[in-house]
Amino acid sequence: MAKVIVKDLHKSYGDNEVLKGLNLEVEDNEVVCMIGPSGSGKSTFLRCLNDLEVPTQGQIVISGYDLSDKGTNINLVRENIGMVFQHFNLFPHLSVMQNITLAPVQLNKESKETADVTAHALLKTVGLADKADAMPNSLSGGQQQRVAIARALAMKPKIMLFDEPTSALDPEMVGDVLDVMKKLAADGMTMIVVTHEMGFAKEVADRVVFMSDGLIQESGKPEDVFDHPKSPRLQDFLDKVINV
C-alpha cells in the first residue's frame, strides 16, 4: 500500500476554497517535490497531511492511519511524520540538544541517555556536531534549519514533510540544508517537499507535482515536467522561475 493516499481533498477558509479536490499517492521511499506559484495551496496541502489544518472534505491515509477517522490518535500519527517548517520553529528557550531530545524523552521513546546519543549522531549527520549546547538564537538560519531537521528525525519518522525549508534562508545557507535533504533522500526516506528550488527538485525528486489554483495541474518525472511541460500554466510558471 502506498505510504500516503489523498483522495478528493478540499479545504476552505470561509468562502475561500484553497484546495479544490486533490488526489495524490506517494509510494514508500519516494521523494515528491511540490512546485507552483505562491497561494496555490502547496503549504496548506502539506499541513493537512499531519492535521495542522483540518480538511473540509476528503480522505487522507498516511502510514496506514486514516486522518478522517475520529478514532485515530493524532499524536501517534504525528510521531511517524516529521515536519520541517519554513521558519524552523526551534524552541528558543531550549539548547540544540534539548530541542532534539524533548519529544523522544517526553513521549518515552527513549531514555534521556539514549536520546542524547541519538541526538549527537543526528547532529553529526547534519554537520553540527559541535553545536549541541548552543542556543538556537546563536545559530545562523541554515544551521537552525539543519537542527530542525535533526529534531524531526529524532522521532524516527517514516515520512518527512518539508514546507519551503530554504525560503527563509540567505542564499549561501541554502546549499548546506539541501545537502542534508539529499542525503536523507539517498538513504531512502519517504519525503514530500514543497519547494522553490527547481534545481533540487530536478536532481532529487522521483516525481514533481505542479500545483496551481488549489489543484494538481500536472505531475511526472522531473525531466518530463521541467523539459516537456504540457499545460500552459506550468510553461508560464517555469518561464518565470527559470528566467529569474
Partner: peptide, 30 residues
C-alpha cells in the same frame, strides 16, 4: 508566543498539554 512553536511541538507528536507545559509556558512566562 509564536503559533509556529505550538505547531512544531504538536507535529513532533507531543500532546497539547505537554506542548503547553514544555514549550509554550516557559516562553510565555518569560
Amino acid at each position: 508566543v509564536d503559533d509556529g512553536q505550538m505547531e512544531a511541538a504538536r507535529s513532533l507528536g507531543l500532546p497539547y498539554w505537554t506542548a503547553m507545559r514544555k514549550v509554550i509556558m516557559p516562553q510565555g512566562i518569560r
